[in-house]
Simulated scan of single mutants.
Amino acid sequence: MPTSTSALPRLIALPKAEVHVHLEGTFEPALLERWATEAGQRLPRPRDQLLQFSGLTDFLAFLDWACGLANTPERLASLARAFSERLAADGTGYADLIVNPTHWSAWHGKLRGFIDALDAGFREAEQMGLPKVGLCVSLLRTQSADEAVELVDLLSAWRHPRVVALSVDGNEATAGRTGPRFAEAFRRAGQAGLKRTVHAGESSGPEGVRDAIELLQADRIDHGVRAIDDPSVVDLLVDKGIPLGVCPSSNLVLKVYPSLDAHPVERLRAAGVRLSLNTDDPSLLGTSLPGEYALCATHFGWGDDVLRALAQTSIAASFADTDTKARLQAQLASW
């Protein structure tokens, strides 16, 4: 997405967190081409069209193909390190990273090994002084209630220090209403001390956001932008102080909204909804976190006070530990 480049150095220096970003969306095209060649696989479409998506359904199918190439612990660890390097380059001090095990076909039935391999890469990155990362392990909307409970029970038994939250993602438009199906899994997650973050209000309407709040007890909502279609849902977000992790460029590329003029991020902010800006799938969508800030600041005329407030929300809404939050808040105060 086109952005104002003159502001990027200041926005890289802005202390901030990222709370809505998927590991599945951080593959670089050159890496995918190399791994596909090594596996003897053809690219799903010509190289110059590899990252051209017709919509969310096409995009999710591409993720399944890409993740299937990451079939060794070493490849997972390298993805983790590369993600941490991306955070540092963007000036991001912490990230809640979403991973959906259903996309990673080589790791089906090997969830603990999957998490351990990523953890090894993140521990190595942290030892190099790179930002901390927490994992939000995500359900896919088409999974059953029993599968959801099974995942939560495993996470609860392991209590892996890298895992900070349960998530749910996938195409709301094709899966239909899923809040009632996953309510028990999210209830158990809360009892186990896991945070809860929910994709809602992207390809569904505001009813998905309401379900995320009332049925899944979401601590944070990913996207949530379609809440704007129902003033009562906007009021619910404001009254409960539930933050949205908004991804403007993603919503444009995947055709949730036709233009930034039509995007409701400014209307939601003006209504008092707590917001953070995020990349969703930065490599595949051609964006960066400073780029998202620059894009919106330029288009909506946001000044430093708005940018600082968005960054503050990103830190407060993250699932980082207390010390990490305090450090980033202190840095933000002097930006």
Rank of each mutant, 00 (worst) to 15 (best):
L23S: 14
A218N: 07
V238S: 05
P44I: 08
A61H: 13
L216S: 11
D119K: 13
R226N: 05
L244S: 12
A13W: 09
H103E: 03
T197D: 06
L43H: 14
Q41S: 12
L275Q: 10
A309G: 13
V265I: 13
F182H: 08
V225F: 10
S78W: 07
D169P: 02
W107G: 12
S54R: 15
C67Q: 05
R34Q: 15
S259P: 03
A120I: 05
F122C: 05
E266W: 01
S203R: 06
L154E: 13
S250M: 00
D116R: 13
R181W: 12
R187V: 14
S6Q: 14
R162V: 14
R123E: 10
M1R: 00
E38H: 12
A192M: 09
L252M: 11
L11V: 14
G113A: 13
R327E: 08
D96S: 03
R86M: 02
A333K: 09
P243S: 12
F83S: 04
G68W: 05
N171Y: 11
N71T: 11
D48P: 04
N251H: 04
G55E: 08
D305N: 06
V21Q: 13
V152H: 01
F83V: 02
L50I: 05
G113P: 01
A36Y: 10
L43T: 13
P161V: 04
F319T: 08
F300T: 01
A320M: 07
G25Q: 07
F62A: 12
A88R: 09
K255G: 00
E74L: 07
F186P: 02
S138A: 15
H263Y: 05
Q329E: 15
A189S: 14
D64S: 15
Q331M: 15
A13M: 09
F300K: 06
V163F: 07
L194G: 05
L237T: 02
D119A: 15
L60T: 07
D229C: 03
D323L: 14
N100V: 06
R226T: 12
A173W: 08
V137E: 09
E28V: 11
V234E: 03
D281E: 07
P44C: 10
R42Y: 03
I221C: 01
G224L: 03
L60E: 07
L51P: 02
P46V: 13
S105T: 09
P15V: 11
S54V: 11
L11G: 02
P29E: 12
T26W: 13
L32N: 05
E172A: 05
L14M: 15
S318P: 10
A311N: 02
D64R: 14
P264I: 15
L11H: 09
N100R: 02
I98D: 02
F182C: 09
D211R: 10
A148D: 05
A200I: 07
L332I: 09
V99P: 06
D48Q: 15
V198F: 09
A271Q: 06
L295R: 01
A297H: 02
R159C: 05
Q217E: 09
L111R: 15
F114N: 04
A77P: 01
D48H: 15
C67F: 04
T287E: 00
L79S: 11
